[in-house]
């Protein structure tokens, strides 16, 4: 401690320094000044500022959490919309495929029907031609048989029968 001789007077009291009342008044006064000033500056200025900083941080964190929650909801909604769109598209694709199949089936059936009808018609025509040819051939057979009969009869009896007679005989023979 510097210059102890300057306060020899206070030590002369011979009391334990903290209990020496000589400077109690001075200490109380300066305590009131320093403590009071500290209280004023802290309560009016510094502590509200510190509290505001903490408040702002809390608000910011709360806001950010809210924002994150909102974005999360949005993302979920977008995912749902995407799922729905996908399901719609899938359903549409199914109907398009089914439609196309039905149309093609119908076309195939129509074509097949047409071809079959044509074939039937040709078949019919061919058959009728065969029938005609057969009938014609049969008709010619009688005629030939008649002329052959008259020729044979002429050879046998030297006299040719009339066509009518020959035909009559052929008919009778072919029937018999």
């Amino acid at each position: 401690m510097a210059a102890p001789e300057t306060h020899g007077a206070t030590e002369a009291h011979g009391v334990f320094p903290p209990f020496d009342p000589q400077y109690f008044g001075s200490q109380l006064f300066w305590l009131v000044v320093s403590f009071g000033l500290l209280y004023l500056v802290l309560s009016r200025f510094l502590l509200p500022r510190l509290g505001q900083i903490l408040e702002e941080r809390r608000d910011k964190i709360a806001d950010d959490l809210d924002e994150a929650g909102r974005l999360n909801e949005e993302a979920k909604a977008a995912a749902t919309a995407y799922e729905n769109a996908l399901a719609d598209a899938r359903a549409k694709a199914h109907t398009i495929a089914a439609d196309a199949k039905a149309k093609i089936d119908a076309e195939i059936a129509e074509e097949t029907g047409k071809v079959e009808a044509e074939m039937d018609a040709k078949h019919e025509e061919a058959e009728s031609r065969i029938r005609e040819a057969k009938a014609e051939a049969l008709a010619h057979v009688q005629e030939i048989a008649g002329s052959a009969t008259s020729a044979i009869v002429e050879k046998l009896i030297g006299k040719a029968p009339t066509d009518a007679e020959a035909q009559k005989a052929v008919k009778a023979a072919s029937r018999g």
């Binding site: 400077y23 008044g25 001075s26 000044v33 510094l46």
Partner: peptide, 24 residues
């Protein structure tokens, strides 16, 4: 009243000033 500035006063003022300065 004897309100003489003392070493005790000095350190009370210093304590207040240090807190104010630190927080500021």
């Amino acid at each position: 009243l004897d309100l003489t500035f003392t070493n005790s006063s000095l350190f009370m003022v210093l304590a207040s000033a240090a807190i104010i300065l630190l927080l500021m």
